[in-house]
């Protein structure tokens, strides 16, 4: 992205909402992303400081470890109308707490089983490992997941709210 830049000049602010395949989205999902403090959250930070573009329709919730993400968190997100939930943590072997992410896998499996029983499409829930260095991967996962959930449409449990309904935060520009 930065290859086209020169000096201090910033490119003109483009459309704030990057879209999949260039088409204007008719609907944008509400996503909840759980990220561990040590890897995935830092990965999101890396994406930010590297100015990598990605779709912004998610709320990032930081927890100390992906092992903390118990089924109740995910289920509550769905109960409150989230269209998709992404759980992310450190790669195996990299967990700050040695094996917290192994616990995350166990918790995730049960959560997925219950989510399927409830009739929520399994494509709405995803588990990904993103390290602190993988800013590009964070952006890629977010883009993929957003597109995936967008294709599924609103969650049957959502109340018809749209991410786009939420006013943009002043001073935060998504530059291209």
């Amino acid at each position: 992205m930065s290859a086209t830049r020169s000096g201090n000049s910033r490119p003109a602010r483009k459309k704030a909402v990057p879209t999949a395949k260039g088409a204007a989205p008719t609907w944008n999902p509400n996503l909840v992303v759980f990220a561990c403090n040590w890897c995935s959250y830092a990965g999101a930070d890396t994406a930010g400081v590297s100015r990598i573009q990605h779709q912004p329709y998610f709320r990032l919730i930081r927890v100390m470890c992906s092992g903390r993400i118990q089924p109740g968190f995910v289920l509550r997100a769905f109960e409150k109308g989230a269209d998709g939930v992404l759980v992310s943590g450190c790669h195996f072997g990299d967990c700050h707490y040695v094996n917290g992410n192994e616990r995350a896998v166990e918790q995730f499996k049960k959560t997925m089983d219950v989510v399927k029983l409830l009739g929520i499409d399994e494509g709405r829930l995803r588990l990904e490992w993103i390290s602190a260095a993988e800013g590009a991967r964070f952006a890629q996962v977010i883009n993929e997941f957003t597109d995936q959930v967008r294709a599924l449409g609103p969650s049957p449990l959502s109340n018809g709210r749209q991410a786009a309904d939420v006013p943009a935060v002043k001073g935060v520009a998504i530059d291209g």
């Binding site: 118990q70 089924p71 109740g72 968190f73 289920l75 509550r76 769905f78 109960e79 219950v114 409830l118 449990l157």
Partner: peptide, 13 residues
Amino acid sequence: CPHGGSLQSVMRM
């Protein structure tokens, strides 16, 4: 709830 509210969430859904 001892299970972080998961079961209540399931029931409310």
